[in-house]
Amino acid sequence: MAHIKINEELPGIRSLMDFRPETAAPLNALAEVLLRNNEGLTMGERELIATYVSSLNDCTFCQNIHGAVAAYYLGNETVVKVKEKFEHSTISNKMKALLQIATNVQLGGKYVTENDITNAKNEGASDIEIHDTVLISAAFCMFNRYVDGLGTHAPDDPEMYRFRAKKIVEETGYTHSSPK
């Protein structure tokens, strides 16, 4: 049961966006610039970082919805493999180096080492890509806590997440997605 009175027919963050539209607007705008941008990292890579950090934070709703969006771009197998053990997946060495940075950001900002950064740069990551990786990872340490800290509901049905993911990608983005 949720910790506050929200419409529990709405899943995850959507119930909170319905509860508090004033904060929903900047949160959606933030998700849009973090994830719906192809400068440097592709949209698929951005969603993959979001999914991976959400799985480290054990946030069921976020890892399923962003996992479904990432799967839209990159295929489900890639998403499953990355969540299992990204080092053994078929993603590029640059993405592996960036996911190592994401792993450490999830632990805490000071866990990111000079060595992590050098590895990423050696694999061809630009400053903007490193910046965006840290930003996306850090932001999902917020979204995940917000969703779980208020005890929102995460449905089990993978079809719901796939349906919603397709809608986000093809129609609404995050800015125009309605909680309902």
């Binding site: 805490g108 900002g109 990111v112 490193i130 910046h131 930003l135 850090a138 340490c141």
Partner: peptide, 10 residues
């Protein structure tokens, strides 16, 4: 938890 990581992570 976001801002602290963003600042220290970079």
């Amino acid at each position: 938890c976001f801002f602290n990581r963003y600042i220290d992570g970079l």
